[in-house]
Amino acid sequence: MEKNFELFLTQLYEAVEHPDLFERALTTASDMLGTSGVHLYTYDAAKPEERLNYVARIDTAFELEYTTDYFPHDYRIERVHKSPYGQVITDAEMTTEHGLKTNPVHQLLPRYEVYDLMGTNLTKGDNFGWFGVSSLRAGDGFTPLQRKVFERMIPHASRALHYRQRVKSLEMKLSLQDRVAAELPFGLIIFSQHTISSINPEALEILEHGFLKLKKAGLACTDRKHNRKLAEAHVSALHGGLPLLKLTDERSGITYLIQMFNPKPQAAGGAVEAAQYLAVKIMMTGASEQAERAVLENMADVFRLSKAETNVICAVLSNQSLQAYSTSRSVRLDTVRKQLRSALYKMNINSQKQLFQLYEVFRSFSR
């Protein structure tokens, strides 16, 4: 028995990172208990996409039909909620005579060969949680030994279920964050507890111009006057404000629109607390202004730039993002980046900030 229990634990905790292994773990539990179906489940009606449903020896169609048609009307849910967390509860404590006669859920269970139930309340917050087993046949009930073994399983099933919930929530958050950030038409930087949590490609391109800089707690600027405005905006945003700044780089003529906000404002005792997160949204204006062609041709001639390299340099100097340029030219973004790196290498510079400075030098000599 002990060897089988250790096998169950190994399989259960492996399943947290590899959820397809839950069925194997629950099958091992079913074998140890001498029962039929085993069900490990958590569901929040407000977040149906995050529900978890793991079964062994139960038709997988059961959960979908139950969740869709029966869960909102299952009177037993309230009784499970009222039972202490992790304490065994049986049919006798969940059902009523009136419910047995009138509630349609009792017609659903036998169709899926779910009979006498023994389970426990694993609800946390708004996520209804359940770990339960079904007897082999109707009326079998459960022996004291089955109950004892099931009680040993409960704390481990609870940990595995809620660990998996956290992992899934994080996976969904990161997936959404990556997908959205990659498609945004503006720069987006998320700071979390004095570290940079995420930054999208558009923001990286904007920072390459050199006017704005990253620091651990937020955004800084090469211009001291503008830097003070940024610092004040940081404080405002972290305390619930929604500051919007318009900063102009006098050297390049580029104007930056910067908005800061706290994605998850917190309040305690009626007062807004400092937030754990800071989101910074950046847009550049003046993208319609074109770099002077005569100056570009002079630079291309001096540094022996190819036509493709000259075009991408023109796009950068005209404040067009590489993504927008690659789309307009029907050229892969990776190819555009290679062309830019090649041009910068030929000019013996390594940043877009230096490119603007070099352009200004050539333009001053062209007059």
Score class of each variant (00 low, 15 high):
G34Y: 11
Q339R: 09
E14H: 12
A237P: 15
M32C: 11
G269Y: 12
R51I: 03
P84Q: 05
H81F: 15
D91W: 08
V80E: 06
L188K: 01
Q259Y: 03
R164W: 12
G129S: 12
L136Q: 10
G129V: 05
N200M: 13
F5W: 00
H39R: 14
N200Q: 01
T27I: 08
L207Y: 06
V167K: 10
Y115F: 15
F356K: 00
E65I: 08
F186L: 13
M260P: 10
L40A: 07
T335L: 06
A138D: 15
E6N: 09
Q276H: 13
I206K: 04
G37D: 05
S135Y: 02
H239G: 02
A308C: 07
L26S: 11
S328A: 13
K225Q: 13
F5H: 06
A237G: 04
L9G: 01
E232Y: 11
A279F: 12
E297N: 14
K148Q: 13
M299S: 04
D116K: 08
L204Q: 11
N262G: 09
R164N: 14
V88T: 11
G210F: 00
L317G: 03
Q352D: 04
T285D: 01
T60C: 01
E273A: 03
D116M: 03
N350M: 04
L26C: 11
T35C: 15
E113H: 15
E250P: 04
T60S: 12
R332S: 15
G270K: 07
V312W: 05
R363A: 03
R363Q: 03
D334R: 10
G187M: 03
L333M: 07
G139M: 12
H18S: 14
D301M: 12
K47W: 07
Y54R: 05
Q339M: 10
T248C: 07
N348V: 11
E273I: 11
P265T: 13
M118T: 06
Q323R: 14
S236D: 13
R24N: 12
K216N: 12
T42K: 01
K47H: 14
E208V: 01
P243R: 04
A25G: 08
Y325V: 00
D31K: 10
K173S: 15
R224H: 07
T285A: 03
R51N: 07
T120I: 07
K229Q: 14
T248D: 02
I77N: 08
F211E: 00
F128E: 06
